[in-house]
Amino acid sequence: MILKKTLLATSIISLSLALSACGTTTTNSDSNEFIKVTEQNYAFAETARNYRNWAALGANQHITHMRNLPPRGKAAPTVQMNDDTLYSVAIVEAQNGFVTFDIPQTDVYMAVQVVNEGGHGEHYVVGEGSYTTKVETDYAFLIYRTGTEKGLDAARTAQDRITTDQLKFGTYQVKNYDYKEVEAWTSKLTAETQGKVFAYTFPRSSSDVTDLHQWNLENANGWGGSSPEANVANLYTNSVMLKANQCQTTTFESPDSKYFTSVTPYDQSRYLIDGANHVSSNNWQKNADGSVTVSFNCGQEAVNNIDTNGQDFSFTVRYYGVNQKVLDGKVTPEKTVVKS
């Protein structure tokens, strides 16, 4: 496993250098032949950017295991990555419109999300079993999320149990967008949401999109998120941007997610912050009345403190197996922030 870890780390560094150097990867050197990015196809373009980034890490040839928590900043292959699970990713071809995959028996949380080429997480399944799911595009992006609640070694052991015998690799071709243009669209859309609380709906299919602009905002801020489903899939919410030079807290009723809940800070571009970690219901301290307080930049002695190392931030709350009371708006950490 040391070789696999080394290869993945090298691939991530190489990807980061490539993105920094030129901001684009394409199958055609003639920029006049790029697919133009529009409001109508932005979700496909942003999805292609994520497929392309992970293909550079080998996910088009085999399942790519991320053996540690994601890189901080834009070295990460995907915006707003989880800080509470390990990732394993496969880009596969659908067979007669279906993808079949397995989740092994493990003693930690493990889920698979099936994301089509339009950015829709058509399916989110949790727990051991063999699953056959229909997809509306020719290719699918499988995201295995493996829980770290028992530590990284336990998560890595669970990753090693994943089998891929039923997956067809190696036929996806990176789409011919100008990825500098895609990044510009993403930055513009992300900036639009920074002054407000933002909740994700993540419609499961193209026919479920009722507000195209909202859908584009969701892809820009948190591509690859799940469509909320009580006690199964996840709900995500973002706070407004907050200042790092003052102590701030949020207190809320215990969310009682079926699996766990986490709070993670992100920088202005929606990437993880160097040196800043999440807190989760797997280890947070509750108040005497059963509620939860999460502190930001309030010092090591503050309850459930997250230090953003002097960087302004927003935070995302993830409810894994969201409780109905959260879906009903009765638990809203992102709306209850106070300055101390």
Rank of each mutant, 00 (worst) to 15 (best):
K5G: 08
R67S: 12
F141I: 10
Q173L: 10
S31L: 12
I143M: 15
H278W: 01
F260T: 05
T27W: 01
E253L: 08
Q173H: 00
A75N: 13
T100P: 11
Y266C: 03
N323Y: 01
S226C: 15
S254A: 11
E149G: 05
V337H: 11
K36Q: 11
K74Y: 06
G225F: 02
F202Y: 07
S20H: 13
G195R: 01
L217P: 02
L152C: 09
V112I: 14
T100I: 05
A18L: 12
T27M: 14
Y259I: 08
G310R: 02
V99D: 07
S11N: 04
P203L: 11
P333N: 14
S16Y: 10
G170P: 05
T201L: 09
A302E: 12
I63F: 14
T201N: 15
E46T: 04
N50G: 09
G121Y: 12
P71W: 01
V331C: 01
V79Y: 00
V240Y: 10
M241E: 09
E181M: 09
E122D: 10
Y87T: 00
V174W: 04
S88G: 12
V197I: 11
A94D: 13
V279N: 04
R49T: 04
G127V: 11
Q166L: 14
L235H: 05
D84T: 14
A230E: 10
V126D: 10
T190E: 15
I91H: 04
S239A: 01
F315E: 14
D256C: 00
N176W: 06
G23C: 08
M81F: 07
I35Q: 12
N41L: 05
F296W: 00
F98V: 04
F34H: 08
T64P: 14
T210R: 00
N277H: 08
E181H: 05
R145A: 12
L57S: 04
V232K: 14
E192Q: 03
Q268K: 14
F34L: 11
S239V: 00
N32T: 13
T85E: 03
Y179I: 04
K4H: 14
A288C: 04
T332K: 04
H123P: 11
N216P: 03
N60H: 15
V135T: 06
F296L: 01
K335F: 08
D30F: 08
N234T: 15
R49N: 12
G118H: 07
N28W: 00
A184L: 02
G118R: 06
D256F: 00
D307W: 06
A75Y: 14
Q95K: 14
I63N: 12
A18E: 12
G299V: 06
K4E: 15
D328R: 05
N216E: 07
F198Q: 03
F202S: 05
T336D: 13
E149L: 03
E117M: 11
K74M: 06
M81R: 03
G119W: 02
T210H: 00
G118I: 02
S295K: 01
T78Q: 07
R318D: 01
G119Y: 07
N176R: 02
P77F: 06
R72T: 12
S207D: 13
